[in-house]
Design a protein around this nucleic acid. Sequence first.
RNA 1: GCCCUCUUAGCUUAGUGGUAAAGCGGCAGUUUUGUAAACUGUUGACGUCAGUUCGAUUCUGACAGAGGGCUCCA
Length: 588
Amino acid sequence: MDNNKQNQLNNLRHSCAHLLAAAVLKFYPDAKPTIGPSIDEGFYYDFDFDNVKISEDDLPKIEEEMKKMVKSWDGFERIEKSSDQAIEYFKNNPYKLELIEELIQKGEKITFYKSGDFIDLCRGGHTPYPKSNIKHFKLLSIAGAYWRGDEKNKMLTRIYGTAFPTKDELEKYLWQKEEAKKRDHRKLGAELELFTFDDMVGPGLVLWLPKGTIIREELERFAKKTEKAWGYQRVATPHLAKKILFETSGHLPYYKESMYPGMKLDDGEYYLKAMNCPAHHLIYRSKPRSYKDLPIRLAEYGTVYRYELSGTLAGLLRVRGMTMNDSHIYCRKDQIKSEFLRVVELHKYYYKVFGITDYYMRLSLHDPKNKSKYIDEPDSWSFSENAIREVLKESKLPFIEKMDEAAFYGPKVDFQIKSVIGREESISTVQLDFAAKKRFNLNYIDNDGKEKEVYVIHRAPLGTHERFIAFLIEHYAGKFPLWLSPVQLTLIPISEKHVDTSRIIADHLISKDFRVEVDDRNERMQAKIRDATLQKVPFIGIIGDKEIERFDAKNPEEALISLRKRDEGDLGQNSISEILQTFQKELE
RNA sequence: GCCCUCUUAGCUUAGUGGUAAAGCGGCAGUUUUGUAAACUGUUGACGUCAGUUCGAUUCUGACAGAGGGCUCCA
């Protein structure tokens, strides 16, 4: 969409927010309006209802009122106010007063906009003809939102809505929202029997069902194979460790809120690990290292536990127990750039395999002025930030830079992926760490015989199984590629007398390492086809009289089955050897 | 954690101040099937704990879990 069109849409939506505020005030004259911007998918307006309850059931009547009111809105009249006038007008609204104070401090003009009988503090940006333009809108939901997003502030009531220039666009948006729900990983995860939760285990702790576990293990197998080829060594570390480890790493008490509480035992206090790095550092320093050994890349599919706020948990996207494709790279300062480049290249490779194209990187830098927030190593910062920036430029991938968002111990790069249903997630993050070397005394002997400090890169290209699989479910809409499909081929015997032959064929394919099931239920073939299709199995094989005519148990490769491919339909009769070839091709 | 909403069988839903209906699934039987749901029978639920009430799945409260949100700034 070009800028002009985007502006018009934003203006329409922001105007609609005004209309919403006007209608709300009609029903709730004491509500205090705060802010009402347009957003990507529509608009919202935050109110302080001051203990008056409002629920989603109230939205239809507000919407009706908006439709009524807009008929008398001929335009938006701009009114400039002096600061005294503005303060006087909003003397009962502390939120608007706060905004006005800020404008006064910045020395900006204070403007009000009037439409119908409704006047609001506003910088402008409206549709010129509200009466005729604001027609296709819908209020969507009510949510709580802290004033200015800070949990220390009062919780306001936010009303979300959306608006479009035409009826078709509005309907299309609502339809897309419905479609997105069908792809939601929570829904598909249950339908395809991939994972579940149970109150007896606890929120945010996933129970992986057999089919979901196959996906996990295939991903691990793929990552292990890939990372072995890229020079990583695998390690394994315990799920818990003594308090001193996390004190040394600096996570206690700094990160304590997000860790499960300690377990007091007779030899001290133990904590569940919330990250793998401390244990990897100990492995690094388990013996003296030479400059010739570096870089050392230690990798682990490590399971960590983080006590995330209960309200933020969501399906597999945000959990409390997660297994990550983790690795720590220990390198010399002169290797930072080349190692970082390798990590970015590894991401590129992974994302290509999964057909992920809609992503960008976010480089988080430190703010030299904000001294208290960052470790005091100006040389390390400037050296590494420049090196990483060069790497990102060389990678030719899109990236943005964010000031003052680095970790306290070093700059980081997040990979932001936009899923097909429009959710943007940070799937993976690469962080450079200047702090670990001092905290854990991570050194190597350089060629001059002197001890030097080692730099650490944290990376997890596939993120956690939990979030990555959530992403993949939605990305593929449950139609996993053959190598990830929990069941790759379902064999359907047409009648009972074809079951034994089907089993022999299945066993043969299983012995060749394929995941094959025989649907031997007492059902009609049509029902079995339907079920296998709904389970999104990539291949379905039908076995009836025609197929077993010349079947010879001694030579199962010659057997025929009628093959059907997901989304492509009938492939006709294929011999098993032909099917093996087809599979091999798919897996490449 | 905070705000709003929700919680009836494995799943999707109906319904009521006098303990509940159905479809799918599961199980049993009949049927032996040629490309997206055979037929018959049967099984199975009001999240937990309090309160109000003669009586609560229904009303109230707490708790637990799930869902939508929690700076894309007048």
